[in-house]
Design a protein around this nucleic acid. Structure first.
Length: 578
DNA sequence: GCCGTTTTCGGCCCGACTGTTTTCAGTCG
């Protein structure tokens, strides 16, 4: 079994190694595009190959990459990669993590000084051997030395939620500058990616200098990486890089579009502009058909898309996945919004590992404008969290019955449970207990290291249990920290479809599980998705916005998400399962 | 290496900043 991720990783590695060898940049891009296409496929490419599908029909995959996919699927390895690895030691790829170090410089270091890893690079810099190379100097050597520390310390991206905190703090800091007329964050932060590599701030101001001075006086600043006429970059104490650009008012929209990206989206946009005799850059959109540049617009982001007769794509959609196809068919989905959410179907209380009582969670949910929630504490297997046995669970449910009576239809509390899927298979609570629940989440917490076959069979068992409603955090991944367990999600989704089961998109910023690509796969199959906070406290209920952002990246609409329905319609849909 | 209602060959996004190279290459986003 060769998964999409494994194949994509191989293609990316080939891209890295070829880049190092100075291969034609477009050939390298072709490998990267192929890797991306496969990574984002809604179904396993191995299944497509087995069916005899023509893989070259997939956008970004031609004859060569298709052959390599077949070789990987059939033999589990790729001769080309084995060869490349002989030529370039794997550790030299670490050199590229040093800021300012690209493939050309790294290759020079490897070829001239036989430097194979970061340790050898450090030693060579300290001995002054690097500055002797053509194109290198003393300053470059110092930068490399500083950069090695950065490469070692800060090579992980920040969770979106954490980047959001930094972003808000920076904006508040900059707002003190009176001459700032407009200010906006761009980049992957604006696109709502689950992790953010750096922040891009765009500003319109009468005078550049006070803005840059203020930027350089930010309290968490560690170093100023660079400062030019229009652009300034800093690194924060936590290693995070922030770029600031000051742009003229007539270019603000163009710059916002440009720096929001993604790169892939912009490549397509620029290609289209070129075909129409237009040119886009961060200053605007220009008619170049006469040989001169005639400014057509750029003050607003809309100006760019209007000129190309394209809709103003929501930033979360700008990944060159399907947005251009949708636009051509006039079928751009209306993405779900936070305000569409009416219920929250996964949360914990002090009965297990939550911080707030049942009553406090209900009050907090009501004050956030929700109409219904499900209380889903852990089941007995999760002993660390004092998981509920049948008796304690039934006691909680009796309490919920009383509270519902007290609420008199103004708010609905569902009697739920997050029931563990046991290591040996089967559910952690007997069927007669689960049968009494309004809402049963099934989830894996233990035995995450099991084989693909074991884990998949466990989850399939839960999907087939008639009392289970929804699979919670279906892949178990933790953003930046833990890979998904080895589940065959494609099989799980097909089984869920067959048995009328739903899938959770867990909104907790460190989970965001399902992943955006998996959301699209579930949507394709018509499986209702539930966005839930998995709140362990009152404030945890506010995590819903992270889940909605992820859902938007997955292309989900209001109608794809079950808990956008009113309490009455939600129950109706729930009871009509199967 | 991929792609095609301008093309099966000849393109493939575009500009700022830095350092070192005196006219530009490399890196980055």
């Amino acid at each position: 079994m060769t998964t999409n991720t494994q194949i994509a990783d191989v293609l990316d590695e080939i891209g890295d190694l070829l880049e190092f060898q100075g291969t034609n940049a477009f050939r390298i891009r072709a490998y990267r595009n192929g890797a991306r296409a496969i990574r984002e496929l809604p179904e396993p490419i191995s299944a497509m190959a087995e069916r005899g599908d023509d893989l070259t029909k997939l956008a970004g995959i031609g004859k060569s990459v298709a052959e390599k996919c077949h070789e990987l699927i059939d033999t589990g390895e790729l001769k080309q990669l084995v060869e490349l690895r002989k030529q370039v030691p794997h550790s030299v790829l670490d050199l590229l993590r040093v800021p300012g170090m690209g493939p050309k410089k790294a290759a020079m270091l490897f070829n001239e000084l036989k430097i194979k890893d970061l340790d050898e690079l450090k030693e060579a810099c300290e001995q002054g051997r690097v500055r002797a190379l053509k194109g290198f100097g003393e300053k470059t050597e110092q930068q490399i030395l500083a950069g090695i520390e950065v490469a070692a310390a800060a090579n992980t991206r920040m969770l979106w939620a954490d980047a959001d905190d930094v972003a808000r703090s920076l904006l508040a800091h900059l707002k003190a500058v009176k001459s700032i007329q407009r200010m906006e964050l761009a980049g992957s932060y604006r696109r709502g990616k689950e992790t953010v590599g750096d922040l891009d701030i765009l500003v319109v101001a009468d005078d550049h200098q006070p803005v840059m001075d203020r930027f350089g006086a930010y309290e968490d600043l560690a170093t100023v990486i660079g400062r030019g006429e229009t652009k300034m970059s800093i690194r924060l104490k936590n290693g995070f890089q922030v770029d600031l650009r000051v742009v003229p008012a007539e270019s603000f929209g163009a710059a916002l579009q440009y720096f929001t990206g993604s790169k892939e989206h912009n490549v397509v946009l620029r290609g289209r502009a070129r075909q129409q005799g237009l040119k886009i850059n961060e200053y605007g959109i220009f008619d170049v058909s006469s040989g001169k540049e005639v400014y057509l617009g750029g003050a607003e982001e809309r100006d760019i898309y209007d000129q190309l007769k394209l809709p103003l794509f929501p930033p979360e959609m700008r990944e060159n996945r399907r947005e251009f196809e949708w636009a051509e068919q006039g079928e751009l989905p209306r993405l779900i919004e936070l305000g569409d959410i009416r219920g929250d179907l996964h949360m914990h209380t002090t009965a297990t590992d939550g911080k707030a009582s049942l009553r406090e969670m209900i009050e907090a949910a009501r004050s956030r404008g929700l109409q219904y929630i499900a209380i889903t504490d852990h089941s007995q297997r999760v002993s660390m969290a004092r998981g509920l046995d049948p008796q304690r669970l039934r006691d909680q449910w009796a309490e919920i019955d009383d509270l519902n009576e007290e609420l008199d239809g103004k708010f609905l509390v569902l009697k739920g449970i997050e029931c563990d899927i046991l290591e040996k298979g089967g559910m952690d609570l007997p069927d007669d207990v689960l049968e009494e629940a309004d809402w049963v989440l099934a989830s894996v917490h233990y035995g995450q290291q099991q084989s693909r076959k074991q884990i998949t069979e466990r989850i399939l068992g839960a999907v087939e249990n008639p009392h289970v409603d929804c699979i919670a955090h279906p892949t178990g991944r933790l953003v930046n920290r833990r890979e998904p367990y080895e589940v065959d999600l494609d099989s799980v989704l097909h089984a869920a479809k067959e048995h009328g089961k739903w899938m959770e998109l867990n909104a907790s910023p460190e989970r965001l599980d399902l992943h955006d690509v998996n959301c699209a796969a579930a949507q394709n199959l018509g499986i209702p998705i539930v966005i839930s906070t998995d709140a362990h406290s009152v404030l945890g209920l506010d995590q819903m916005r992270y889940g909605v952002l992820q859902a938007r990246r997955g292309g989900l609409r209001k109608e794809d998400v079950a808990n956008t329905r009113t309490a009455k319609d939600f129950l109706k849909l729930l009871r009509s399962r199967n």
